[in-house]
């Protein structure tokens, strides 16, 4: 049997019988119902929100890093009493200091 001819004949048979394009009744209504009833994907919303928040977070981090680096360089030059970092540390450790005083 000539396989080449058989292949051609079968492909011609497939071309001679194109598939139907019939659409089931009210198919579009079913799709619309599915689309409107689609549940809100909570994790996807979270993921999208977090991705959107990533850029401002990176920007703030970079800004703070730049600021702290410039402040460190000025700090080494002149350390004053009203240094922001000193005040921040005092404020942060205030409860601990008070505890120590009470004891």
């Amino acid at each position: 049997m000539n396989l080449e001819d058989l292949q051609k004949k079968l492909l011609a048979a497939a071309r001679a019988h194109p598939p139907e394009d019939r659409v089931p009744y009210a198919f579009e209504k079913r799709i619309l119902a599915r689309l409107t009833a689609q549940p809100v994907d909570g994790s996807a919303l979270w993921a999208r929100a977090l991705w959107r928040a990533a850029i401002p977070c990176v920007a703030v981090t970079l800004l703070m890093a730049t600021l702290s680096l410039t402040m460190v360089s000025t700090e080494t030059a002149t350390v004053t009493d009203d240094d922001v970092s000193q005040q921040f540390e005092l404020a942060l450790l205030a409860p601990a200091n008070q505890l120590e005083e009470l004891q």
Binding site: L10, A14, A16, H17
Partner: peptide, 11 residues
């Protein structure tokens, strides 16, 4: 090639 059998075979 118009026979249903040929269509079934190619499927």
């Amino acid at each position: 090639e118009h026979a249903d059998a040929a269509k079934q075979l190619i499927s």
